[in-house]
Simulated assay, not measured.
Amino acid sequence: MKNPYQKIYLASKSPRRRELLRQIGVAFELLLLRDQTPRGPDVSEEVLPHEAPQAYVARVTMEKARAAQQMMVWRSLPVRPILAADTTVTIDGQILGKPADKAEAGAMLRRLSGRSHQVLTSIAVIHGEQSWQLTQVSDVLFQELTEAMIEAYCDTSEPYDKAGAYGIQGPAAIFIESIRGSHSGIMGLPLFETAQLLQQAGIRIL
């Protein structure tokens, strides 16, 4: 039987990651990083010059995990494994972040229309002095999007808190012809890989 007292810290504001952890029965508490402090965010998500997408998403994820670990120590919280993750969308080697407005969201969707792109989700687990990390990559093929489809989608709240201006778990699912990789990874937390890392950190899944 799984130890009911096993619990992790989740260093993520994403409601989708919370849902996915609950799906596999992982107990967690939120350990949220700050977007604004007098010195700026706890972790900057700015892309470094000439930084490749896979290097970027891995770096940001580990920085989130390390910052959460420091927060755990500063607050004298119970010591538990910490899980952090970051997801980015890339096409033609360029990172597509979260759109700032409707025009930017529309431009991203036009770029993805009728083409295949990659969704990269990196996950990191830290426990004590040990850390484990991997990045899962999925290929996503969009159908050709009409201007009417793009306009209607951008009139919803869906595109604006998601990398690449869409979420597979929402209405944009109808845009997707096929995926090769991890459906949950595209949502923001690849469950197979997450379970592997958590088990290495001593968290029993089943």
Rank of each mutant, 00 (worst) to 15 (best):
Q6P: 04
Y9K: 06
A11W: 01
A11V: 05
A11C: 10
R17L: 06
R18A: 10
G25V: 08
L32R: 06
L33W: 11
R34C: 15
Q36Y: 13
R39V: 11
P41E: 07
P41T: 13
S44L: 11
E51Q: 06
P53W: 03
Q54Y: 01
Q54T: 10
V57Q: 00
A58L: 02
A58S: 12
R59G: 06
V60D: 07
V60P: 02
T61Y: 01
R66M: 14
A68Y: 02
Q70K: 12
M72I: 00
V73K: 09
P81W: 00
I82H: 00
T87S: 11
T88W: 00
V89R: 02
V89N: 07
G97E: 10
G97N: 12
K98I: 05
A100S: 14
D101S: 09
G106H: 01
S113Q: 13
S116P: 02
V119T: 03
L120P: 01
L120Q: 03
Q130P: 01
Q130I: 06
W132S: 12
T135D: 00
L141M: 12
F142R: 10
Y153P: 07
S157C: 09
P159N: 07
A163N: 03
G170K: 08
G170W: 08
G170N: 13
A172K: 02
I174K: 14
I176K: 11
I176N: 11
E177R: 15
E177N: 15
S182C: 10
H183L: 15
I186K: 09
L189D: 05
F192Q: 12
E193C: 06
A195K: 08
L198Q: 06
A201D: 04
G202Y: 12
G202F: 09
I205V: 11
L206K: 13
L206M: 13
L206F: 10
